[in-house]
């Protein structure tokens, strides 16, 4: 027997399966809310916490916004320079690769000493996390511009790097820049808890999760905030895809379905 599946609802079945499994495992096998609270009690926690939830989301969005804006503004010019000029790439690639593996967590003391206990310090941690994916995906886009397109640009009158970048390399690299930004946004959200756990402000999803709920061993609250964090990140990702990818990259439909 064939059951027609509507593609639109394709995501629903796995989601419901996981949630039901969670509820059953937590309620009948583990039966210890300190180890794994039930899904239903987590949902109830979200309801209970609704008063602090919205301000926490807003503060986290502020940190995220600062970090991501900085990362984007710093990474794009560097990506153009590294992606287009082979010598610049060779000169600074080793430097980048030394700094890149240092986890954003390790930057916390530096952030506190340099910037102090404020929103910008939290933004800085997120900046560290988001900067490298944006940089690397973007410069890869610039490095991969097909030779024939560059030469076409030249014979059509692009004299000099500035025009070639403007008319050929930049538009070619835009999808890579978008991909890098999406990956950067994901890493940025991963850094929110780290960015807020050292107490730059008395709110924020990460701050509340780590400094309040965890110390009080309120695991249902912790997991509730983890879920909220995931949902907010999902929303920003969907918004980005709606605003950028679907509108700007009509021409890619022939390449990627």
């Amino acid at each position: 027997m064939k059951i027609p599946i509507k593609e639109r609802g394709l995501w629903l079945a796995p989601l419901i399966t996981v949630l039901v499994l969670w509820e059953l495992v937590a309620g009948y096998i583990i039966r210890d809310s300190l180890i794994l609270p039930r899904f239903s009690s987590v949902i109830y926690s979200i309801y209970v916490l609704k008063g602090v939830l919205i301000p926490d989301i807003l503060v986290s969005l502020l940190h995220f916004g600062i970090g991501l804006t900085l990362a984007f503004c710093a990474a794009i010019p560097m990506a153009i320079a590294m992606g287009w000029f082979e010598k610049i790439f060779k000169a600074i690639d080793p430097l980048i690769e030394i700094v890149r593996p240092i986890p954003p967590l390790a930057w916390i003391p530096v952030a506190i000493l340099w910037i102090g206990l404020n929103h910008y310090a939290a933004g800085f941690i997120i900046f560290i996390g988001a900067f490298f994916p944006i940089l690397i995906d973007s410069y890869t886009g610039f490095r991969n511009v097909p030779k024939v397109l560059v030469e076409t640009g030249k014979v059509l009158g692009c004299t000099g790097d500035k025009k070639l970048i403007r008319y050929v390399a930049f538009p070619y690299a835009l999808p890579s820049i978008a991909t890098g930004t999406r990956v950067g946004m994901g890493v940025g959200w991963m850094c929110v808890v780290a960015a807020e756990m050292f107490g730059v402000s008395n709110s924020g999803l990460g701050y509340r999760l780590f400094q309040k709920f965890y110390y009080l061993h309120q695991m249902d609250y912790v997991i509730a905030y983890m879920l909220v964090l995931g949902l907010v990140a999902l929303c920003t990702d969907r918004l980005f895809r709606y605003l950028v990818e679907d509108r700007m990259f009509k021409w890619k439909r022939g390449i990627v379905k």
Binding site: V148, L149, E151, T152, V155, V168, P171, Y172, L174, W251, K252, G254, I255
Partner: peptide
Amino acid sequence: RGMVFQEFSLFPWR
């Protein structure tokens, strides 16, 4: 000097 290449050389985003 107009040039037409053997490979397809249109700018896909235009």
